[in-house]
Amino acid sequence: MAETEGGPFVVVPHDALSYWSATEGGYDRACEVVELVGVLALPGDAEALVLGDEPLSTAYLSEHRVLVH
């Protein structure tokens, strides 16, 4: 289980990690997502999933391959 005190969770595919940088504007872009779930475009046709900016718990259930937010 992972928790936040207000910042969004960003889920980036392993093969796109080299395109993600929270320190080079990525975090600011993630914070611009106003919905509970959003998508950020990354270079190379990759995408990152942004999970809400609320203080919520999130868990990954590997046996079901699902994120619960």
Score class of each variant (00 low, 15 high):
Ala48Cys: 07
Ser62Trp: 05
Tyr60Asn: 08
Glu35Lys: 14
Val33Leu: 02
Thr23Arg: 03
Val66Trp: 04
Ser62Phe: 08
Val12Trp: 05
Glu63Arg: 10
Val68Leu: 14
Gly26Thr: 02
Leu56Phe: 11
Glu63Ser: 06
Val39Gln: 08
Leu36His: 04
Pro13Arg: 03
His64Pro: 00
Thr23Met: 00
Cys31Ile: 06
Trp20Phe: 12
Phe9Gln: 06
Leu67Gly: 01
Pro8Ala: 04
Asp15Cys: 03
Val12Glu: 11
Leu40Pro: 05
Gly26Ser: 06
Val37Gly: 09
Ala46Gly: 06
Tyr19Ser: 12
Ala30Arg: 08
Leu67Asp: 00
Asp15Thr: 09
Thr58Lys: 07
Val34Phe: 10
Arg65Asn: 11
Val39Glu: 08
Ala2Ile: 08
Gly7Arg: 10
Val39Trp: 08
Pro8Cys: 04
Thr23Cys: 00
Leu61Asp: 10
Gly26Cys: 02
Trp20Pro: 02
Val66Thr: 13
Ser18Gln: 14
Val10Pro: 05
Asp45Ala: 15
Glu63Lys: 09
Glu35Pro: 04
Pro43Gln: 11
Pro8Ile: 02
Ala41Thr: 03
His69Glu: 04
Tyr27Gln: 07
Asp53Ile: 13
Met1Ile: 10
His14Thr: 08
Glu24Val: 06
Leu42Pro: 01
Thr4Ser: 15
Val39Arg: 15
Ser21Arg: 11
Phe9Trp: 04
Asp45Ser: 15
Val66Gln: 11
His69Asp: 04
Arg29Val: 00
Gly6Cys: 11
Thr4Val: 12
Leu49Ile: 12
Cys31Val: 13
Leu49Pro: 02
Ala41Cys: 01
Ser21Ile: 05
Thr58Phe: 09
Ala16Cys: 11
Ala2Cys: 09
Asp28Ala: 14
Leu51His: 04
His69Arg: 11
Thr58Trp: 11
Glu3Asp: 14
Ala59Cys: 07
Gly26Ala: 03
Pro43Phe: 04
Ala2Val: 12
Ala16Thr: 01
Ser18Arg: 13
Ala22Arg: 01
Gly38Val: 05
Ser21Asn: 13
Ala41Met: 00
Ser62His: 10
Cys31Gln: 09
Thr58Asn: 08
Leu56Met: 14
Pro55Asp: 07
Val66Glu: 08
Val34His: 14
Glu47Phe: 12
Met1Pro: 10
Val10Ile: 10
Leu17Pro: 01
Val11Glu: 01
Gly6Asp: 10
Gly7Ser: 09
Pro55Trp: 05
Ala59Arg: 14
Met1Cys: 09
